[in-house]
Amino acid sequence: MSFAEPSRIEPDDNQSRGIALAILLLPLTLPLFLFLCLFVFLPVGLFAFLFSFTGELLFYLSMWNDGRTLTRRRLRRRLAAGETGTLIIEYPMLAQGRTHAWWTPDDISTLAPLPIPDRSSDEYQDAVLDLMEQDQSHPWDAWCWQEYTSTSQGKASLLRVWNGKKYQEWLARHYPSIPIVETTSEIVRQLEIEAQQKSHQPQP
């Protein structure tokens, strides 16, 4: 009985050349990659972080100057004294990221002129995206901004910037009966800024 000799798989010449070229270029590409990380990506990322952090700090200071900030200690005292209200988690941008926490003694669920949408739902996200194409804001976001979170006419008190959702976790743990609502202010904030700029332009 004879056995067939096992077939040999010959290496592909192009693949072999590619591997050899990669090995040869590795000493050149590694320093370039390190250079880009240290002198391009890292400075750009650091600048973006500092720019965002500074903006949030200035925003908080402006609200503090207007008497519209509230510390956790003062809020805890109010809640211990029997005050009720609503925690507002504001997303300055539609995408997940920075959040602001606001407090109002109002029961927004009974005062809102329309149903409060679920911000995480596809229905709300699709509606916001459709309205953005028309430079319009969602009716809920517009109402919540005008009544509570607007920097010029809102009446809610700012608790925290940058990561306001920490207050959501804190309230859910210690005061689970306090309602929490979410809103996106990206479009309505921009519309208010544009309206203010137009009002300050000299009339012909």
Rank of each mutant, 00 (worst) to 15 (best):
34 L>C: 12
34 L>F: 03
34 L>Y: 09
37 C>G: 13
38 L>Q: 08
39 F>H: 09
42 L>T: 05
43 P>F: 08
45 G>S: 14
45 G>T: 06
45 G>D: 01
48 A>K: 14
50 L>M: 08
53 F>G: 00
56 E>P: 00
56 E>L: 03
57 L>M: 13
58 L>M: 05
58 L>V: 08
60 Y>E: 02
60 Y>A: 11
60 Y>K: 12
61 L>M: 14
62 S>F: 00
62 S>A: 06
62 S>W: 03
66 D>E: 15
69 T>N: 10
73 R>N: 11
73 R>E: 13
76 R>C: 04
79 L>C: 04
79 L>R: 00
82 G>H: 05
86 T>A: 08
86 T>Q: 09
86 T>I: 11
87 L>W: 04
89 I>F: 06
90 E>I: 04
90 E>T: 12
94 L>W: 13
94 L>N: 12
95 A>R: 08
97 G>V: 04
98 R>M: 10
98 R>S: 15
98 R>H: 15
99 T>Y: 09
100 H>L: 14
100 H>P: 04
103 W>D: 00
108 I>M: 00
109 S>K: 14
112 A>W: 00
112 A>T: 10
112 A>Y: 01
112 A>V: 06
112 A>P: 01
115 P>T: 10
117 P>F: 00
117 P>W: 09
119 R>G: 06
119 R>K: 12
120 S>H: 13
122 D>F: 09
123 E>C: 01
124 Y>L: 03
125 Q>K: 07
125 Q>F: 12
126 D>C: 04
128 V>L: 12
129 L>K: 15
129 L>H: 11
131 L>F: 04
137 S>M: 08
137 S>H: 12
138 H>G: 04
140 W>C: 02
142 A>T: 05
142 A>C: 05
143 W>N: 02
149 T>Y: 05
149 T>L: 06
149 T>H: 03
152 S>F: 11
153 Q>C: 01
153 Q>I: 12
154 G>R: 04
155 K>H: 12
156 A>C: 00
158 L>P: 07
158 L>S: 07
160 R>V: 05
160 R>G: 00
160 R>E: 10
161 V>A: 09
161 V>C: 10
161 V>N: 09
163 N>L: 07
163 N>A: 04
164 G>S: 07
165 K>T: 09
165 K>I: 15
166 K>D: 10
167 Y>I: 06
174 H>E: 15
